[in-house]
Amino acid sequence: MQTAISKVSTARLRRAIELAVGPLLLFGIWWLAARGGWVNKDLLPSPVDTLRDTAAAIWSGSMTKDFWHTMVRVAYSIAIAIVAGVPVGIVLGAKAAVYRSVEFIVDFFRSTPATAMFPLFLLLFGLGDLAKIAVAAFAAWLVIVFNVAYGVMNARQTRILAARSMGASSLRIFRDVIFFETLPQTFIGLRTAVSLALVVIIVAEMFIGATDGMGHRIIDAQISYSLTDMYGSILIAGAMGYGLNLILLFIERSIVHWSGK
Rank of each mutant, 00 (worst) to 15 (best):
K65H: 09
S60L: 04
L124N: 05
G213R: 00
E103K: 12
A79W: 13
P23T: 05
T115R: 01
I236T: 09
L142I: 05
M1Y: 10
V194F: 05
H216P: 02
G22P: 01
K65A: 09
A168F: 03
G167Y: 02
A137M: 01
R175G: 03
G28S: 14
A149T: 10
Q185R: 08
S9G: 10
M117T: 06
S170F: 00
R217Q: 06
R164A: 06
L249P: 00
G151D: 14
R172L: 03
L124S: 09
N147F: 07
S101L: 15
K132Y: 03
G37C: 08
T54A: 10
G260Y: 03
V177R: 12
L122I: 12
F67Y: 14
T10K: 14
P47W: 00
L196V: 12
V72R: 08
W31M: 14
M166K: 04
M166V: 04
V72A: 09
P87D: 13
L142G: 06
A94M: 05
S226N: 13
I173R: 00
R175E: 10
A197W: 00
Y150V: 06
V102A: 12
A79N: 11
M206D: 05
V194S: 04
P184G: 10
D53P: 07
I234E: 06
T3N: 12
M214W: 01
A149G: 07
A114M: 08
I188S: 11
L24H: 00
S169H: 02
P45C: 11
M71W: 14
L25S: 13
W30K: 06
D49C: 01
I201Y: 00
W59H: 13
I58M: 15
V83G: 11
F207Y: 14
A79P: 04
I173A: 04
Q222N: 11
R156P: 15
T70V: 05
G189H: 01
M71F: 15
D229G: 02
L120W: 09
F174N: 03
G241I: 01
T50L: 04
I133H: 04
S60V: 03
T64S: 14
V88G: 01
F121V: 05
S77A: 13
I82V: 15
W30F: 09
L32R: 00
I82K: 06
K41A: 15
A57N: 15
Y225R: 09
A162G: 11
V48Q: 06
D212E: 08
Y76R: 05
L249Q: 09
V145N: 07
T70L: 05
I133P: 13
M71P: 07
V143K: 08
I251V: 11
V194P: 04
F207V: 15
T182P: 10
